Every structure is written in C-alpha cells, then in structure tokens.
Simulated assay, not measured.
Amino acid sequence: MSASKKFAAVTGAGSGIGRATAVALANAGFAVALIGRRIEPLLETKELIGTEGGEAHAFSADVTHAESVEHAFAQIAQTFGRLDVLFNNAGRNAGAVPLEDYEVDFWNDVVATNLTGVFLCARAAYRIMKAQSPQGGRIINNGSISAHSPRPHTIAYSATKHAVTGITKSIALDGRAFNIACSQIDIGNAATSLTERMNKGVLQADGRLASEARMDVTHVANAVVHMASLPLEANVLNMTIMASAMPFVGRG
C-alpha cells in the first residue's frame, strides 16, 4: 500500500448513512473497509465504489459480538496494514414505546447495538491506531440529535445516544497520548429509508403527529469526510448536522 494512502472503516456500510459515507470517503481517496452483518449489502456498496474508481473491501461482522468485531478488525489490519479513520456508524432505530410497556429484552437489544457495538468497534480501532506506526488515527462516532434532546417514548434510543457522547469524550481524552482523536456527529433527519416515516408524520413533544423536513444524506457524508480529512492536530469534537426546518431548536 502507498505510504500516503489513508485507510478508513465504516460500520453499517450496507445502506443509508453508512453507504453514503463510505462512497464519499472512497471518492476522497480513502481505501474503505465496509463492515456490516449481512455481506450482500456490503458487496453492493463495494460495487458502487468500484464503479467510481475507488477501493473498498467488505468484512461481515455483528457489532454486538466481541469476537465478531475483533475478527473483522484483525482482517482489516491485515488487509490495509493500518487504520486512519473509523466511522462508528452502525446502530438501530427503536420506535416510540411508552416506558410502562418497555420490555427488558427490547431495551437490551437497543443497548447492545447502539452502545455496546459502538464501544466494541471503538476499542478494536483504538488498539490498531495505538499500535501502528506512525501512531494515531481518528474515531468518529455517529450520535444523534437524540444525544441532546429525546423524542417522546424513546428512552432506550435516547439513553444510548447520550451515552455515546460519554464514549466520545472519554476516547478524546484517553487518546491524546497516542495521537488518537475522537469526534461525534449528531444527525437530524437525513433522508434514508429509516426516516421515510417522517413524511407521513411522527409524534411530537406536544402529542401531535406532524411530518418533518429531511435533508439529502450526502450532506452528512460530506460532513464526515471533512472531519476525517483534518490533520490529527485538529478535531471537530462535536458536529450537529440537521434538516434546517426540522423541529429540533425551540419548544415542543
């Protein structure tokens, strides 16, 4: 591999924000490791990158299982020789469920993906970045505007996204000694299949159902590329990118 080439990994790269960001990183000159549970969508992303002249490799992994994550990142290290950026993107939605109706298994499933998965992938990337020469790298966690303000009846999702902020700050602190930067991007209403319900109407803080504005997912991808492309002496600790007209700022 060229000494000047940069290497990135993207979790949840088979669709939505992950796919758009993987493509954008490849277009920016990164070789990209595509990580996800199902290999078929990853191969579709890989093919899309290849048709645009980029380099991508697919690695199947379940981010909720430590052994699966460790195996995937070991393969990435062997394939690339180093890792410069992790976009820690994999997560799951958790629809509106009143607190009194929450099942423990549902809670545990959301926590496993949105919190434990973020930790496991960050840990694996951190180990590579600390051990490699030149030392260092950047981890970008996908938070959410729910890391700042919850939607109604989303206690598990909101709790995990608030916790991701703690992970981001901890890694940003602990990584200083090893030239490892950590960032968080909080995204509001990117136009993907997961937010199509916004067009029909979603529950608001005042109990109404209302449709919400969405933004093109490429704006998110380009924002991640900007964060990923900074020299390690600089860091965007936290970025909020959102559809301008969504009801995030103000009283509900």
Rank of each mutant, 00 (worst) to 15 (best):
G54A: 00
M129Q: 12
T240G: 05
P134C: 13
V85D: 03
A190R: 05
K161C: 05
P231S: 09
L43S: 04
G188S: 03
R176D: 01
G137H: 09
A112W: 00
L203N: 03
T11H: 14
I139W: 14
S60N: 05
A156P: 03
M227Q: 11
A245H: 02
R37V: 00
A213I: 09
G91K: 01
Q75A: 07
G207P: 03
L173E: 10
G53F: 06
F178N: 10
T240S: 08
A9F: 15
D186G: 00
V69R: 03
R38I: 04
G166M: 10
V104S: 12
A96K: 07
T165A: 15
P134K: 14
M198I: 15
S244A: 10
Q78Y: 14
R197D: 10
G50L: 00
A190M: 01
S144V: 05
V118A: 12
G54F: 02
A243Y: 01
A8F: 08
V110H: 02
L43D: 04
G250Y: 03
A147Q: 06
V97R: 14
T218E: 15
D105I: 06
N27I: 01
S229Y: 07
L43Q: 11
A94Y: 13
V217C: 05
I76V: 08
A26P: 03
T116Q: 10
K46R: 06
G16P: 04
E44Q: 06
G36R: 04
N114T: 13
P41G: 04
G207L: 02
S183C: 08
T64S: 13
N141S: 03
A22K: 15
S60R: 11
I39R: 02
Y157T: 07
G166L: 14
W107F: 15
H226S: 15
Q132V: 14
G250D: 01
I128D: 12
R127Y: 12
H153N: 14
A24S: 07
